[in-house]
Simulated assay, not measured.
Amino acid sequence: MKSEPPSRVGPLLREWRRRRRFSQLGLSLLADTSARHLSCVETGRARPSREMLLRLSTALDIPLRERNTLLLAADYAPAYRESGLDAPYMASVSAALDAMLTAHQPYPAVVVDRCWNVVTGNGPMALLMDGIPPHLLTPRPNVFRLVLHPDGLSSRLSNPGQIRGLFLERLLRQVHATGDPDLRELYDEVSGYPAPAEAEGGPAPAAGTAVPGPIQVPLRIRTPQGELSMFSTMATFGAPADVTLSELAIELFYPCDAFTAAALRALGGESGPVG
């Protein structure tokens, strides 16, 4: 009699538990089960119910895409659909994104997917991408390539070493948190770019911009108008039930000083939206 192949769900679940640094007892308490049952699931001696897998996924804060992977590994149907932004039932989401991007003008804003590929952006974002060579814009611009590649924004930064360190640290944290192989591949690529030397010369910062501020590493970009200094915040959708929506993030840039704010207001109407 042919034996059944071992289930993949146990090893996957154990990998997520270890990534989140939970003991079996700690996770079982959060998921309202027993440590013994959890041990049996991880070793393949017990088949978890669909409800149990969803409870464990919630306790471990597993991304929706990977929750579907866990369910499929246990021979259950995925719990979360993955839709394009052009799907009819995503119309309210697309409208919300458009509203946020428009309202944020004249400051740059961009929507990215889980691998930091640009989905869309507002007009001021196009100003930051001015002069970026075509090979970094196709098939889709990627934020980490745009900023860290020697042919990209890196050559126009006044603090490229600081930005490189900040971006690589951010991406590596995301790799460890998600275990996403595509993010790991992106990290391996961009961390292999040659490390830039700190910029010398170029336009002097506007008066007052050297005063220490609340942002440790601002994005300092040299432009014909002078040095623009910005920081960013990230926004995501609360309680998403769609894989695509759960992986979208909106990065909103703000000026660090009055000079940058005035320059962005003056330039804001000169470019169309990105994407």
Rank of each mutant, 00 (worst) to 15 (best):
E42T: 03
G44F: 13
R47I: 10
R47N: 09
R47A: 10
S49G: 04
S49A: 02
R50T: 03
R50K: 01
R50H: 01
R50P: 00
R50Q: 01
E51P: 03
M52W: 00
R55A: 11
R55G: 06
S57M: 05
L60P: 04
I62W: 10
T69V: 13
L70A: 08
L71C: 01
L72Y: 13
D75K: 15
Y76C: 13
Y76N: 11
A77S: 10
P78G: 06
A79T: 07
E82Y: 08
S83Q: 02
G84C: 11
D86S: 11
D86W: 12
P88D: 08
Y89W: 14
V93D: 05
A95W: 10
A96L: 02
L97P: 10
L97N: 09
M100F: 09
T102V: 10
A103C: 09
A103W: 08
H104E: 15
P106K: 15
Y107W: 15
Y107M: 14
Y107Q: 14
P108K: 13
V110M: 13
D113K: 06
C115D: 06
C115Q: 07
C115K: 05
W116E: 02
W116F: 05
N117T: 03
V118F: 03
G121N: 04
G121F: 11
G121H: 05
G123F: 11
M125W: 13
M125F: 13
A126N: 05
L127E: 08
L128H: 09
M129A: 08
G131T: 14
I132Q: 11
P133S: 08
P134W: 09
T138E: 08
N142K: 06
V143R: 14
R145G: 03
R145L: 07
L146Y: 07
V147T: 02
D151H: 06
G152C: 04
S154G: 00
S158I: 14
N159A: 11
